[in-house]
Design a protein around this nucleic acid. Structure first.
Lengths: 110, 110
DNA sequence: TAAGATTGCTATCAAATTTGAAGTACTGTC
DNA sequence: GACAGTACTTCAAATTTGATAGCAATCTTA
């Protein structure tokens, strides 16, 4: 049954938080490549995602680290070597990434 | 095993398409309220989502209609009455919305 | 009688976000 | 010696999002 006037809906905090965390223009793809394709490095991500700019990728990765999805390991070498990997929280999100990939293949025929 | 240099990763079209479709700043929440809370009207969505502006909500709804997630029924009355509802494609996405809500509750304690 | 509320927008302009291009620092390759 | 590779940062420009006002017609309130 659909809702009617005066029948207000309360906000769902878990959904609005996820929306904030993965709602960017690139986060799902970034997580996908790190989680399911084992991509670890900045330059690889930039190349396989395609159109993302370096400054944007850098910022999005930082946010994913801050939100607890990724770890960032800087080996302090020159030329720079940095590796990104999933945290346990990131791992726990993998089934959702897989479901989205599967949905795309089934529903969109891709 | 992590990937190394020269070992390039191919782009996954189903993931980049989903990213484009639901990657906005609000789409997950919009779909959530329509799918799981039975919200049908523009004004209700605006109120329960909170900070979204009317122009943005209008645009995002239009995109979700264009991408085949929602139907829009205009009853041609004044004051306007318009209803949004899930298409079969939208319905098929519901399990992913549920999984995200659950993930937020379990992982973030919300 | 007339003002105000209701509803789903659109138009306009300001503010915030995202983008591309270039720069940084150093090593290894041609 | 010029150039590519690596992971960024900085800055101006382009794009997206937000705030506000307005429209159309009817019902409600004063």
């Amino acid at each position: 049954m659909a809702r009617r006037r005066g029948d207000e809906v309360e906000r769902c905090k878990s959904v609005s938080t996820i929306q904030r965390m993965i709602g960017g223009k690139w986060k799902i793809e970034i997580l996908f490549y790190i989680a399911l394709k084992e991509v670890r490095h900045f330059g690889q991500l930039r190349r396989c995602i395609g159109n993302i700019s370096e400054s944007t990728l850098s910022k999005q990765l930082k946010e994913l680290v801050d939100d607890g999805f990724l770890t960032r390991t800087d080996f302090g070498e020159v030329p720079p070597r940095v590796e990104y990997a999933l945290t346990p929280r990131g791992e726990s999100f993998v089934p959702i990434l897989l479901a989205m990939k599967q949905w795309g293949e089934d529903e969109l025929g891709l």
